[in-house]
């Protein structure tokens, strides 16, 4: 198995992941395969009060996570500062060349070393209209970072980030959307296809009154007054899709 084929397998797994937890598992496995110990994919935001779409995914050693949270290190991490000026991935040993470290940043670096963190590689992720983000690949102990794997790490970072964005967007949409029952959906889809209530009633084997009740309840769940509004919202939330109604 070559590095490139390992990467392709990982990208297929990432693409198929249905949840952030799945994505974390797949990424953690790939990261170990290419010679790192852990990864951290995150938006550069204040995690004591993050925006709802903020991504923070990884398997940092727990002891370091606690220190980061307690001492609020995330904002001042020199790695994040180095990302601002960098277009490509960089090795942590290069950070001294990229950033004039403040005493606090030096403190963070030392705390990391004491917690057992070693060498690493970070890929900056710039996306216009979104917060800056990065994906870091780290080692525990004093093994040197696998330089030969940096190229694959670049791709993994970008694809993991995109998949994490899609998953979080999906998770947010699903959390917000009112749930409709199957019968409510059936009535809505048939209505969107232009069927009258009496025809829908016949097709579903229920009474016309029941059809009206299903649609009324669906409108109530969405908090809207008209059928058109209901259809638009249900399509937007993907509870019904264009393929169903066209």
């Amino acid at each position: 198995m070559s590095l490139f084929s390992d990467l392709q397998d990982y990208l297929a797994a990432a693409r198929q992941s249905q949840s952030s937890a799945d994505l974390r598992t797949a990424t953690a496995a790939f990261v170990r395969e290419i010679g790192f110990d852990y990864f951290a994919l995150l938006h550069h935001v204040d995690f004591s009060d993050p925006p709802p779409t903020a991504i923070r995914l990884g398997n940092y050693p727990a002891v370091w996570r606690e220190i980061m949270n307690e001492r609020r290190y995330y904002g001042d991490d020199p790695i994040l500062t180095a990302c601002q000026g960098a277009l490509s991935g960089f090795r942590w040993s290069e950070v001294d060349n990229l950033v004039e470290m403040t005493p606090r940043q030096r403190e963070i670096r030392e705390a990391g070393a004491q917690a057992g963190l070693g060498d690493g590689f970070t890929v900056p992720l710039h996306l216009p209209g979104d917060f800056d983000a990065s994906c870091s690949f780290g080692l525990i102990g004093d093994r040197p970072a696998p330089v030969w794997a940096f190229a694959a790490a670049q791709y993994a970072a970008c694809f993991a980030f995109e998949q994490a964005r899609r998953l979080i967007s999906l998770e947010l949409t699903q959390a917000r959307a009112p749930r409709l029952t199957q019968r409510q959906l059936d009535c809505l889809v048939l209505s969107a296809r232009g069927k009258s209530a009496s025809v829908i009633a016949e097709l579903l084997g229920i009474s016309t009154e029941t059809v009206y009740e299903h649609l009324a309840e669906a409108k109530r769940r969405y908090g809207v007054a008209t059928l058109q509004q209901l259809m638009v919202r249900a399509l937007h939330d993907s509870q019904i899709v264009f393929a169903d109604v066209l």
Binding site: Q8, L87, P124, H126, Q154, C158
Partner: peptide, 16 residues
């Protein structure tokens, strides 16, 4: 590679 996040966020399915 610095453009890749922008390319991917449009919604394409890409393969290296």
């Amino acid at each position: 590679m610095s453009w890749l996040p922008t390319l991917l966020c449009v919604g394409w399915t890409c393969h290296p």
